[in-house]
Design a protein around this nucleic acid. Sequence first.
DNA 1: TGACAATAGTCGTTGAAACGTACATTTCGC
DNA 2: GCGAAATGTACGTTTCAACGACTATTGTCA
Lengths: 153, 153
Amino acid sequence: MVGRLIAELKQTKPFRSRADEAYLNLVRTADLLKHDVAGFLKPFGLTPTQYNVLRILRGAGGAPKTCGEISERLVTAEPDVTRLLDRIERQGLLDRERSASDRRVVRSRITAKGLDLLATIDQGIDAHQARRLGRLGSERLTQLIDILEDLRA
Amino acid sequence: MVGRLIAELKQTKPFRSRADEAYLNLVRTADLLKHDVAGFLKPFGLTPTQYNVLRILRGAGGAPKTCGEISERLVTAEPDVTRLLDRIERQGLLDRERSASDRRVVRSRITAKGLDLLATIDQGIDAHQARRLGRLGSERLTQLIDILEDLRA
DNA sequence: TGACAATAGTCGTTGAAACGTACATTTCGC
DNA sequence: GCGAAATGTACGTTTCAACGACTATTGTCA
């Protein structure tokens, strides 16, 4: 099989290396999928990162999380978590309160409204992702996950 | 092997689906690699997208390209190619001129300065990528490329 | 030919990302 | 305990991304 990306990007010359080809494929595919998700989330007024934050807070099961904890768990690196949380709070999807014991710390918790919104979105997202990624069988899905985790090890 | 991403994001709960896990792994890995490349390009005053444009123009082998052609070939989708080219032109790395036969069209061409810069950067980038992606053997590299191209088919 | 659609690029505006830095608070070492 | 370092968050500023709307030019076809 001749590299599909070459045709896709209408390139006439091959990549400079196999690693280069893999990198470009990876970045391109991630960009496409992320745009897809972004389009899906848009009607709900959320960006993928904001959706990610809400999932983190829900995953905490009611335990509020600090900015630092949220930052560590974000799938994509974000500077300035403060203003990211500002935007979500402005929509009433999370609450924040300053810790009494350590007054430097601010903890965030998802609100009932946030949980409702997530519940609504999740169904659609899951179906969406299943359609998108389902084309790979479960075996190749596992291979993909394996390789990606290895790449970050 | 237990999903590495779960530990990495300090999640206690598993992903909602295998597709979800693959998606998050993909987006996270691409983000890490792209940040890596961005850090490498920074001293040269280029973003990954700007570097991408210059490579497209060099790949054209002296034939100037229109905004639309550049846009089609970009690895990550960009609205507003005009201002993207503005920023690169401001650094003297490309030239633009309006077509005489179709006065709606503007063609861009990489300058000698742009070619020099690319030549300097390429060596470092290649070594960088080889180090990063080399950890996968050539077989898994091929598997990865295959799966990603399949995912976009 | 002349109205209308399609195409290529540009621009205004809003909001968000990037980056560094600053501030408040706590912890540590002596 | 007192100064210095570390920590957690916030903010100023510059640049960029996103989205629409708009202009200019060319193509279409009745």
